[in-house]
């Protein structure tokens, strides 16, 4: 595959995996938690690097998942001790992120990991760093993202019912004997690994836009969760593709441009959605 092909594929995988997972965050009103996790993941990656002294994907994945769950747990504990939920989120992730940034500046300066990378990823470099699987040479980050996307898809397919029910009506889920807390942590684990998978491509901060924007667009277009998941993946891939070509045209940051493209897609959906769009609202107001 060409250089451009790999970048597009990687970007689309980011859009699809984040789009899928993001839907559940939106219907659970937990996008802020995702914002927190995607920032904290930076600390996980840095710690994994300091401990294992390598940038191997597996260590990063473990480190980030652990920190992601620690973040979720810390926020929950603070909230339980009486701190407002959004304030708990604000305390935990900014602190973790700050520690991550300081550690990078102190210890990891000379390696591939730097602050700029953490911020916006380096999708343009991904195709250079490859390994060979079954005789095909594929970029490492793309391979990892592919695995993560498939894994996330499998988890969502297997636990679709449970994820849906705990999102919609946790009280009923409790009376039916579903392990509500476990499913919550399962989802947060999924958010963490998706965030790590996307880290190389779009960085810790812009992952949030891939997690939230496609799902929000889909949310304005359908009343079925399953359809919303599908649309969200499509929107994710579309932001990736438009973002990439937009970046080529402007000669600017690819990840930033993916996020901006998502913003434009949202704006269009917001205005033109046949179900919940501003135009329809406006027309309904005039006729009534």
């Amino acid at each position: 595959m060409t250089y451009e092909g790999w970048i597009l594929l990687t970007a689309c995988l980011v859009g699809i995996s984040c789009g899928m997972v993001g839907c559940f965050l939106i219907v659970r009103r937990m996008t802020m938690l995702a914002d927190a996790i995607s920032h904290s993941v930076l600390l996980g990656i840095v710690l994994a690097f300091l401990v294992a002294n390598s940038l191997n994907g597996i260590y990063m994945l473990i480190g980030a998942t652990v920190i992601g769950l620690v973040t979720t747990f810390a926020i929950q504990s603070l909230h339980n001790s009486g701190v407002q939920e959004d304030a708990s989120i604000g305390i935990v992730f900014t602190t973790f992120f700050a520690i991550g940034v300081i550690l990078i500046s102190l210890f990891a300066r000379d390696v591939h990991l730097d602050v700029e990378h953490a911020l916006m990823g380096e999708i343009a470099f991904i195709p250079w760093n490859t390994y060979t699987v079954f005789g095909i040479e594929i970029p490492k980050a793309t391979g990892m993202l592919l695995c993560i996307t498939i894994f996330a898809l499998l988890v969502i397919l297997m636990f679709y019912k449970e994820l849906k029910l705990t999102s919609f009506d946790a009280a009923l889920a409790v009376t039916l004997g579903l392990p509500v807390a476990l499913i919550h942590y399962l989802l947060m684990g999924l958010v963490s690994i998706t965030a790590v998978g996307s880290f190389d491509a779009v960085g810790a901060v812009l992952v949030v836009s891939m997690l939230v924007v496609p799902g929000t667009c889909a949310y304005l277009l359908t009343d079925r969760l399953s359809v919303m998941l599908l649309y969200s993946c499509l929107f994710g891939a579309a932001s990736a593709i438009f973002g990439y070509y937009g970046a080529l045209w402007l000669d600017a940051s690819i990840s930033g441009s993916m996020s901006a493209a998502g913003g434009i897609l949202f704006l269009l959906t917001w205005v033109f959605s046949p179900r919940y769009g501003l135009l329809r609202r406006y027309r309904a107001m005039i006729t009534s």
Binding site: E162, F168, D223
Partner: peptide
């Protein structure tokens, strides 16, 4: 549950909500 306790904007329809009762 009390009627106010769920998110009415959730992407789901009447039949789907009833099916949730079968999940157990």
């Amino acid at each position: 549950p009390q009627r106010g306790s769920v998110d009415w904007d959730f992407p789901t329809n009447a039949l789907d909500v009833i099916l949730m009762g079968r999940y157990g």
